[in-house]
Amino acid sequence: MRVGLLGAGRIGNVHAQAITTHPESELAAVSDAFEQNAQALASGYGCDVLSSDQIFADPSIDAVLIATSTDTHSDLIEAAAAAGKAVLCEKPVDLSLERASACLETVGAKASDIMIGFNRRFDPSFSALKAAIDAGEIGKTELLSITSFDPAPPPVEYIKVSGGLFRDMMIHDFDMANYIFGAAPVTVSAVGTSIADPAIGAEGDVDTAVVTLTYADGRIAVIKNSRRAVYGYDQRVEVLGSEGLLQAQNVLENTVVKSTTDGVSSAKPTYFFLERYMPAYRAEWAAFVEANKAGKGMPVDLKDGVAALAMAEAATRSSKTGKPVVLADI
């Protein structure tokens, strides 16, 4: 599979590693709004620098990976699909639910062939937890808890264009809830505050939030997010079932545990997403390649991306009004 990479920033470089280390794909070309970024990535991987339009028009390029700014995602998805390319697009589909829904309508039947980059589904621990649930190892699932804390707040310049914590950060956890429970919630209740970095609050965003999801069958999910956890990147999932409990714990910097008369201590969690989720990015790309080879739908597709964005929109509204939002109303 010959691949055109759209976007040569930090996440574009992560995807370039995944593409070039897979035995059945090669990085053919890269484009970026800042040519120096494209040139730097291309020189490291020996690929061409082309415009997005040139990549779409090149019949030798089989697939595109979209890792550009979020406000360009829907346009590029539509253009790539129209050009007959296989598509993997980073989350979220768009900052606007209305625009994302229009994109879904535009691509029509191709929606199941467009993969959205919710890489955490492919994390070895999270996918093993999901497999155990599907095998009935803890009976009927009842209560889900997702913890996702960043080590430090991002720059305020990033906050201004991020779309807010619920669309930018917690959207991963909304998709994880859909993945684990296999259904969308009925109601979304959110509370958020700016306590870690007042500058984030000054931009109208929150840096600390809790969301509660309720389901038609009585199940409950709780999602906790913070932009600041001084001890590292805290990523945990816990599921209580009628016959037991499943937990996916943090990945630590090392596995050494020290036990002395002073107590027992271990290493901190890995520092950030590059260290924590690189295996997931590789597994995500492998799943994309395999799905295209097999001619089957994507394991997480455009409809899933729009569904998670609808939950983010509901959470944003709930946090502002202080009232639960019925997802169907979104």
Rank of each mutant, 00 (worst) to 15 (best):
I61E: 08
V14S: 07
V306L: 06
F126H: 12
V289P: 00
N250T: 07
T20S: 12
M176N: 13
C89P: 06
G164R: 08
A40L: 07
L327Y: 09
A199V: 06
V191H: 13
D94N: 13
V206A: 11
M311K: 03
D234G: 03
D175W: 00
V64T: 12
I116V: 15
I195A: 14
A310R: 04
I116H: 02
G9K: 13
E313Y: 00
V186T: 14
D197P: 00
I114Y: 01
V14F: 07
T321I: 07
I195H: 09
N37Q: 05
S25T: 12
I133S: 00
I77K: 05
I146G: 00
D234S: 13
K224A: 14
H22L: 06
T106S: 15
Q36L: 10
I138E: 05
K320Y: 03
L50V: 08
T141G: 10
E253W: 00
G305M: 12
G46H: 04
T212S: 09
A18H: 04
L245F: 02
K258W: 09
E98T: 14
S319I: 02
A80Q: 08
P198E: 03
A199P: 02
D71H: 11
K160N: 02
P151G: 12
Q235K: 13
P279I: 12
L144F: 12
N254L: 09
G218H: 13
S51C: 12
G163R: 02
V222H: 07
K258F: 10
P185N: 11
A221L: 02
D173R: 03
T193F: 03
I223Y: 02
M169Q: 14
F149N: 04
D329N: 03
I223M: 09
K293M: 08
E24W: 01
V211D: 03
L240Y: 12
A33H: 06
I200Y: 09
H172M: 06
E90V: 07
G163F: 02
G4R: 08
K296W: 00
L302W: 04
A283V: 05
P92T: 15
I138D: 06
V3N: 10
Q247D: 09
N225E: 09
V49F: 07
P155L: 09
N292S: 09
A283C: 08
E313T: 15
R2V: 04
T141S: 14
K323W: 02
L41R: 07
V156A: 03
S266G: 10
D301C: 05
S51R: 14
R219Q: 13
T208N: 05
G84Q: 00
D329W: 04
L76Y: 12
S194R: 05
T70Y: 04
V256S: 09
I223H: 01
E284G: 00
G46C: 10
L144Y: 12
V107G: 07
A16K: 10
F118I: 12
P124N: 11
F149Q: 01
K130C: 00
V256T: 15
M169K: 14
I330L: 11
V191Y: 13
V186E: 15
V239L: 14
V239D: 05
S101P: 00
N13V: 14
F181H: 02
A328P: 00
L95H: 15
Y231V: 14
N225C: 12
A128Y: 03
Y158F: 13
I133G: 00
V239I: 15
A29W: 01
G244I: 07
T212W: 01
V156S: 05
D71F: 08
